[in-house]
Structure formats: C-alpha cells, structure tokens
C-alpha cells in the first residue's frame, strides 16, 4: 500500500502540461503542483461526479491530457460512468483511482465489500482498453511513464493508506486556496477560452 502524497509526488514528475483534476488528492496536490492554473481542485461539488466532470473536460479539450484522481467511494456512486467513458474513448483521458477502502472524510467506515473489489477488472469489463492495479509505490512509479505515454482511456487503481478524518468538518484544515469559480476561471484563462 502507498501513501497518497508519495503517489502524487511520483506523478508530479510526469505531469507535463496536463489538466489535473485532483479529487480527494487535492489536499496533497496543492503543495506539489507546478501548474496551478491547469489544476481543477473542486473539493466535492456533489459526490459521484468527478469522473463525469473530468470526462467532460477531456471531450471539450481533446488536445490536452486530462488526468483524474478519482476515489473509490465517489466512483461507486456511479459505476455506469465507466461505460460512458469507455464508449466515448477519449484518447486524452487518464483515470487514476485512489482506493483507501473507506469513507475517510466521514470517519473511516469501510465502503461496501471494500477488500474484495477489483476496480481494474470492473473498468476493463466496462470497456476500458487498458486497466492496471498497483499496491506498491515502486511498482507504480516504474510503470507510470509508460502508462502516460500511450493513449487513453486508461484506468489505474491504486491501493492507498487511508487518511481518516474524525474532527468536525468546521474544525478541519481548509486546503483549498481558491474558490470554485476562481478555479474554473483560471483554467479557462490558461486554455485561452473566450479570447
């Protein structure tokens, strides 16, 4: 199992000028990113939609790589998303799944059937042409460059250590540095949308 921050550090070296939707990795990514204008840290607008949002971005900007760090709790709310992504076949879409086996922000309760779900198998069954699963950082790091060098859509399930939060929401450290409006506005500026 790997730590999310270490996994994102390994990824940061290969980010290039990709759009990154950091999902629940946002709290770590905010300290690692070199291109914040191309990051889309939205927190949690409505659970179950991150993969769909990133798909929409990928379809709108086929010339840019879109990298999503999804989470298993979010994906489980809408597994049908995988079928839609597979049908659309966005070659610029890279779907990483941060799987900590639980609902970490609500106190660490396990997701249903947490230890027995093979998300890479589900993705492949939904029609993703390539799907991988990694439990160790070394193995992930060794394969990452190759994974990102080939066309998407690709799915990469990552087993990570849970970072459980039990403090009341109002007392938690707020890692977001921009409002959602600002995030979208900055992205559109970087992409020269509306020029």
């Amino acid at each position: 199992m790997m730590h999310t921050a270490d996994m994102l550090k390994a990824f940061a070296r290969h980010r290039g000028n990709a759009i990154v939707v950091p999902g629940r990795g946002g709290r770590h990514w905010v300290d690692l990113t070199a291109r914040p204008g191309l990051d889309v840290p939205l927190g949690d607008p409505a659970m179950g939609g991150h993969a769909c949002f990133a798909l929409g971005l990928a379809l709108a900007r086929p010339e840019k790589k879109v990298i999503l760090f999804d989470s298993e709790g979010d994906l489980l709310m809408g597994l049908g998303t995988l079928v839609t992504i597979a049908e659309q076949k966005p070659a610029n879409f890279y779907h990483f799944l941060i799987d900590n086996g639980c609902y970490a922000t609500t106190g660490g309760q396990p997701v249903p059937n947490a230890d027995k779900v093979a998300y890479d198998v589900i993705a492949r069954g939904a029609g993703y042409p390539r799907a991988f699963a990694f439990g160790e950082l070394d193995e992930f790091s060794a394969n990452l460059e190759q994974i990102l060098s080939e066309p998407g859509p690709v799915f990469v399930a990552l087993k990570v250590v849970a970072e459980i939060e039990n403090a009341p929401i109002g007392r938690r450290r707020r890692w977001q540095t921009r409002t959602r409006d600002q995030v979208i506005s900055d992205l559109r500026k970087e992409l020269r949308i509306g020029d």
Binding site: G49, G56, L57, L59, G78, R188, L191, I193
Partner: peptide, 26 residues
C-alpha cells in the same frame, strides 16, 4: 453534434459541467 450517452441522469450534470468548463456548449 457529439452524443454522450449516460446511464443515470445525474452523470449528465457533471459531464455538462466539465464540457462547459472546457469551452464546449453542451
């Protein structure tokens, strides 16, 4: 037109949000 079929209507909202953020008109 590009058709994007979804399996549950709520997905359509998030996909449309991504499309719009990326400069498309869903």
């Amino acid at each position: 037109l590009r058709l994007v079929g979804v399996t549950r209507e709520g997905h359509a909202c998030a996909i449309a949000a991504g499309l719009s953020a990326g400069g498309a008109k869903p």
